[in-house]
């Protein structure tokens, strides 16, 4: 397979002015340059483009480099083409392409995303609660590093414990993904095992037939479980968040530069973004219970 196609998830409306293409989580899902450029060309003049990249090994870093070279050659600085980075090595590559804007991905915007956190029992005023509601980006040296790499936007998930961060004060713009947030991810994949010989199952980096592009699985706990809609999507566990959680987090962002990215499935490699928050709120009301 060469990669995702934009028609996997139709543009929700005119206010959705940017398309995301790619996976935050798996190197195997990196699109071929041709598939990426096809999507980029299709969007030209209609919407801005964000390439999403996962953590990678050296071979993957080379592949990302080729993608960035192709994208950079096709993009003009005013196009505001972005690259979401989930790997410090990839961030270094993006810096070498001045026409591309780096965005800090969810794997590097570290915070607890544990669906088991007892949100209702947290003391809103306690330091322990603030620590749960904040991420790595609240650290001033971390912010300085982001500035030095030209990173101004950081990506977040809805979290059951809520957020307590002042992005305007940090000089950062927040992006909230909805309704699916990541919980955990790795290099070993349950779905890859469906197509692998027994001796390669759960082997890191073994050849993969991308069964994750055909299947996903809902997860339930054999024991009494928290009210969490968990899905194994490829190598990642995602949580489908309730509207109340997303709305609460969105309200807490309170940033003039906030953006919302939505996808219609936890495994979606195509997503749409808007900075028009009423449109985002409308989509959430219509599609999330």
């Amino acid at each position: 397979m060469s990669g995702p196609r934009l028609d996997e998830f139709a543009r929700p409306g005119d206010a959705w002015s940017r398309a995301y293409l790619g996976s935050d989580f798996c190197q195997t899902l990196l699109p071929a340059p041709s598939a990426m450029l096809e999507a980029f060309a299709e969007l030209r003049g209609r919407a801005a483009f964000t390439l999403v990249t996962p953590p990678v090994n050296d071979a993957g870093l080379h592949r990302v480099g080729l993608l960035l070279d192709s994208l950079s050659a096709e993009t003009a600085p005013e196009a505001a083409t972005e690259v979401v980075v989930n790997d410090w090595g990839v961030l270094g590559l993006v810096r070498a392409h001045p026409s591309l804007t780096p965005v800090l991905g969810r794997l590097l915007t570290r915070m607890l995303r544990d669906p088991r956190l007892p949100a209702e029992r947290l003391d809103a005023e306690a330091s322990s609660t603030r620590a749960l509601q904040q991420s790595s980006v609240t650290s001033p040296p971390f912010q300085g590093l982001l500035r030095s790499f030209g990173v101004r936007r950081v990506e977040l998930d809805p979290v059951v414990q809520g957020l307590a961060m002042d992005f305007d004060a940090m000089g950062l713009a927040p992006t909230l993904h909805a309704p699916f947030g990541y919980v955990t991810t790795g290099r070993v994949c349950l779905f890859a095992a469906m197509g692998q010989a027994e001796e390669h199952r759960f082997e890191v980096g073994a050849p993969c037939r991308q069964e994750c592009r055909r299947f996903a699985a809902r997860m339930t706990d054999a024991a009494p479980s928290p009210d969490a809609a968990l899905i194994t999507a490829g190598n990642t566990v995602m949580q489908r968040h309730e509207r109340s959680v997303i709305t609460r987090v969105l309200d807490a962002l309170a940033s003039r530069d906030a953006r919302v990215v939505v996808r219609d499935a936890p495994f979606g490699e195509v997503a749409w973004a808007t900075e028009h928050l009423p449109a985002a709120t409308r989509w959430i009301e219509e599609h999330v219970s």
């Binding site: 349950l190 592009r213 055909r214 299947f215 996903a216 699985a217 809902r218 997860m219 339930t220 706990d221 054999a222 968990l230 194994t232 499935a265 495994f267």
Partner: peptide, 8 residues
Amino acid sequence: WRYALDRR
């Protein structure tokens, strides 16, 4: 976990 398989 128990898993329920879905096709995309």
